[in-house]
Design a protein around this nucleic acid. Sequence first.
RNA 1: GCCCCCAUAGUCUAGUGGCCUAGGACGUCGGCCUUUCAAGCCGAAGAUCAGGGGUUCGAAUCCCCUUGGGGGUACCA
Length: 497
Amino acid sequence: MSEQLSGDGSKSVRVRYAPSPTGYPHVGNIRTALFNWLFARHTGGNFVIRIEDTDVERRVAGAVEDILESLRWMGMAWDEGPCVDGDFGPYTQSERLHLYQPLADQLVREDYAYPCFCSAQRLEEMRAEQVRLNQPTGYDRRCRDLTEQERARCRAEGIDPVIRFKVPRAGRTQFRDLIRGKVTFENSLLDDFVLLKSDGFPTYHLANVIDDHFMQISHVLRADEWMASTPRHIMLYNALKYEPPLFAHLPMILGPDKSKLSKRHGATSLLEFREEGYLAEAMMNFLALLGWSLDDRTEIIDRQTLIKSFSLERIGKTAAIFNIDKLRWMNGVYIRALSLEELTDKAIPFLEKHLPSHITRPLDRDYVRKVVALEQDRMKTLKELPELARFFFEAEVAAPLDLLANTGVPDQKAVEAFEVSLDVISGMEPFDHDSLETRFRALATELSLKTKDLFGLLRIAITGGTSAPPLFDTMALLGKDQCIRRIQKALVLLRCA
RNA sequence: GCCCCCAUAGUCUAGUGGCCUAGGACGUCGGCCUUUCAAGCCGAAGAUCAGGGGUUCGAAUCCCCUUGGGGGUACCA
C-alpha cells in the first residue's frame, strides 16, 4: 500500500491532467495540474496532458491555448500531449472518436449497455416529477429492457439513441481512494448514465475511462468533485475488463464565499495572475501549499524541493479557500529574492504597459535598474511598480498643496526651507547620496527644523507623496536638475497659497 | 430530497492515543530600526481542536449521533 501511495513501486507512474476547453483554467484547475506534475516529477514518471473536448456545445475558442500557456508559464512541462508527441496519442479526444463508438457497441453487445430513445423532453418531465415528489432524480430505465423489435421501431422512426450503461440494480461499488480511504456507493442509487451521446460523441465517463486505459494512466489525481463519478468509472473498467488506475481525489479550492470556484469569483483565471504581476515561482509555491504541506513550518519552498518532497501522503482532505493576502506576501518574498537583473527584466514590461502614455518609450534599462533597486522591497506585485515608481519617470511632479501645507511646518518656514535647499543643491558637487545626506542634515540644524520635517517637505516636493524610497537615494537618482525643478515648483505652489 | 466527502484561530495549515499549558504562516495589533513607506527584527491578541455521547488510565487524534460546510445528483466536464 505505501508502495502505491508513494508511487515508488516498480509499475511506472503515468499521470494526466485532463482539462476540458470549456473555459480558462482557474487556480483550482492549475493546482490539480500541479499536483499531477509534481507527482510525476517526484516519481520519475510521465506527465500527460489530454484535452477532453467532447462537449461541442460548451467549447470555448482559445481555451486550449490558454490552458497550455498557463502550464508553460508555470514551468510545468508535459511529457506527452498537445505539441509533444508520445506513444499514446492523439491527445485530444475529438481526434479519438473512432475509439469510443466500437467500445460502446461492444458494451451493448455484451449486455453492459443499451440504446435509449427517450427524448430530452421526456427526460426533463421525468426529472421535474421526481423533484416534485422529493424523490431521488435519475433516469427511470424505461429503455433498459426494450426488445430488439421495439428498438428497431424507434430507429425506424429516425430517433438517434444514446447509449446508457446498465448499472446493476443491487450490490455496491467501492474503491480505495489514496487520500480518503475506502469509499462505498450503493449501486441501486446510481442511475443508468449515458456513455455515448446521440451525436456520437462520448460522455466524459466513457472517454475518460477508455483513454486512461489506453494511455496506461497509473494514478488519477483529480478534484474532489469527481468522487461521485468514480463508482461509474469503476463499473466501466470492470465491464470493459480494464484494470482501474489508482484514484486520489484532491481537496477542492473554494472561492471566498466557500463555493466552488467559477467565473463569478472574478480574477481566478491563472493568466490573470500573471497580468497582475505575480511570479510563476510564487504561484507554484502558494498553490502547492493549498492542500499539501511539507512539514509543520516550511512556507517558502523552491521548485526542486517541491519535487523532491512531494508526496500523496501529505495531501490534506479539507477544501481550502483561496487567500489572496498570503499569495501577495509570498510574491513579495519571491520578488525580494530576485537579483536586480532578473527583477529589471520582469519589471520593464509592466512599466512599459502601465506607466502613463506620455512617458516616452522605450525606457532606459540602466535607469530602470536603478529605480528597481530602490523599489524592490516595496512591491508585492510587479504591477505595483509603475504606480510606486511613477515619479521617477515623470518630467514633472505635482506636489499636492494639501500635503505641503500639512506637514506641521508653518508655510513661512517651509518656503524658507525650500529656498535654502535650492541654494544648497545648486552648488552641490558631487550630487550623490552621501553628500546630500551630510549637507541636508546640517541644513536641518541650521534651519532649526527636525530632520524629519525637512526631509518630509523635500520628499513631498520631489516625489509628490509621503511615501517613497529613501530621500537621498531618490534625489541622487533623479539628478540635480530634476530636484531643482521640483522644489521650485513646490515653492511656487506654497507661495501662492 | 437523496448520495458522497469534509470539519484545528478570519485564512492556509502541523498534529495519526500520552512530547499539546494545541506548533508554524498570512492577516491584525504593538514595539524596535528609521528621513517617509516598505523590508527586517521582536512581541501580542486570536482555537471551549463544530457540539454531544462513548472507548481508554489518558482523545484534536478511535467509534457513534447531531450540526455545519462542500461536492454530486445532465445527451457538462
